[in-house]
Computed example of a mutant assay.
Amino acid sequence: MPAVTYNADGLVPAIAQDAETREVLMMAWMNEEALRRTLATGKATYWSRSRQEFWVKGETSGHHQAVEGVAVDCDGDTILLTVRQTGAACHTGNRTCFFTALTPEDAL
Rank of each mutant, 00 (worst) to 15 (best):
M1Q: 03
M1C: 02
M1V: 08
P2R: 12
P2K: 12
V4F: 04
Y6H: 02
Y6Q: 01
Y6W: 14
N7G: 04
A8W: 07
A8F: 01
D9F: 00
G10C: 06
G10R: 02
L11D: 13
V12G: 06
P13Q: 11
P13W: 11
A14Y: 07
I15P: 00
A16K: 05
A16G: 01
A16Q: 10
Q17D: 11
D18P: 01
D18E: 10
A19G: 09
E20K: 15
T21D: 10
T21Y: 05
R22I: 03
E23F: 04
E23N: 05
V24E: 06
V24N: 07
L25R: 06
L25G: 02
M26K: 02
M26N: 04
M27I: 15
A28I: 03
A28F: 06
W29N: 11
W29V: 03
N31G: 13
E32I: 02
E32L: 05
E33D: 15
A34H: 09
A34M: 12
L35I: 12
L35T: 12
L35R: 04
L35Q: 09
R36A: 14
R36M: 09
T38H: 11
L39F: 00
A40I: 09
T41C: 00
Y46G: 01
S48Y: 05
S48L: 14
S48R: 15
R51M: 05
Q52M: 12
E53Y: 00
E53N: 11
F54I: 09
V56L: 11
K57Y: 08
G58P: 13
E59Q: 13
E59V: 04
E59I: 04
T60I: 07
T60L: 10
S61G: 10
S61A: 07
G62W: 13
G62L: 07
G62P: 11
H63V: 03
H64G: 03
H64M: 04
Q65P: 05
Q65E: 13
A66N: 13
A66Y: 15
V67N: 05
V67P: 10
G69E: 14
G69L: 03
V70W: 02
V72K: 13
V72P: 03
V72S: 15
C74P: 08
D75Y: 05
G76N: 10
G76Y: 12
D77R: 02
D77E: 09
T78H: 06
T78Y: 10
T78K: 12
T78C: 15
T78M: 15
I79H: 04
I79W: 04
L80R: 14
L81P: 02
T82Q: 12
Q85A: 01
Q85S: 06
A88H: 07
A89I: 02
C90S: 08
C90D: 13
H91C: 05
H91N: 01
H91S: 03
T92M: 03
T92A: 04
T92D: 01
G93Q: 05
R95A: 04
T100H: 08
T100F: 00
T100I: 14
T103F: 00
T103K: 01
A107P: 00
A107T: 10
L108H: 10
